[in-house]
């Protein structure tokens, strides 16, 4: 595909990601905020797709948009006692804003200062396909992969333990 089309798509996705994040923070309705979060997740998947990271994009949609966002929406809708409770007063959160600014500034400084000293990576000519990705994941990176799945398992068991069950 031509670079113009890619450029247009990238601009649209960038606008959708950042605009969605701003809308999520500024909306007063918590349900709307959750839907904006979902939109940001989908737009991020679009960015991955544009980078030819097909598998990552699919997993992003399947796990984050398809499950995490649904879970968030589900929890919000279950815990709201009345519909009117969904609308909250706007809290500017100055402390969080200052922290975000500091972090962003530090990041910008680090990129500006140190990026020249790091070795530049070479983009491969052909994008590796999903099979190649899987092979790398289960041979070179098998141990980190297993550790990650162990962490998730511990979290799962912990969640079941904390929620108690009915003692049967």
């Amino acid at each position: 595909m031509s670079s113009t089309v890619n450029g247009v798509v990238f601009l649209a996705l960038a606008f959708a990601t950042i605009g969605g994040a701003v809308m999520m923070l500024s909306t007063r309705n918590v349900v709307h905020a959750a839907f904006w979060l979902l939109e940001v997740m989908l737009a991020t998947a679009g960015v991955y797709m544009l980078l030819s990271a097909e598998f990552l994009a699919l997993v992003q949609v399947l796990v984050y948009a398809g499950s995490v966002a649904v879970l968030i929406l589900f929890t919000i809708m279950l815990t709201l006692r009345r519909r009117e409770d969904a609308i909250r007063e706007f809290e500017p959160g100055w402390g969080a804003g200052i922290l975000a600014l500091l972090f962003g500034g530090a990041l910008l400084f680090a990129v500006e200062r140190f990026s020249a000293q790091l070795p530049a990576g070479v983009m491969p000519e052909v994008v590796p396909d999903v099979a190649a990705f899987g092979e790398k994941l289960f041979t070179t990176w098998a141990v980190p992969f297993e550790i990650a799945s162990l962490v998730l398992l511990v979290a799962l068991v912990g969640a079941v333990w904390w929620s108690g069950g009915d003692g049967k």
């Binding site: 349900v31 839907f35 979902l38 097909e54 598998f55 699919l58 949609v61 399947l62 948009a65 398809g66 499950s67 966002a69 649904v70 929406l73 589900f74 809708m77 519909r83 396909d129 999903v130 099979a131």
Partner: peptide
């Protein structure tokens, strides 16, 4: 012709309930 076509189709199907949840909430 997607190499991960099966996963792609499931991904698309997994998005549909979001719309149903949206319809359910918005209807008041």
């Amino acid at each position: 012709n997607l190499d991960s076509g099966l996963l792609y189709t499931f991904t698309a199907l997994s998005l549909i309930p979001i719309g149903l949840l949206m319809a359910g909430w918005a209807s008041a």
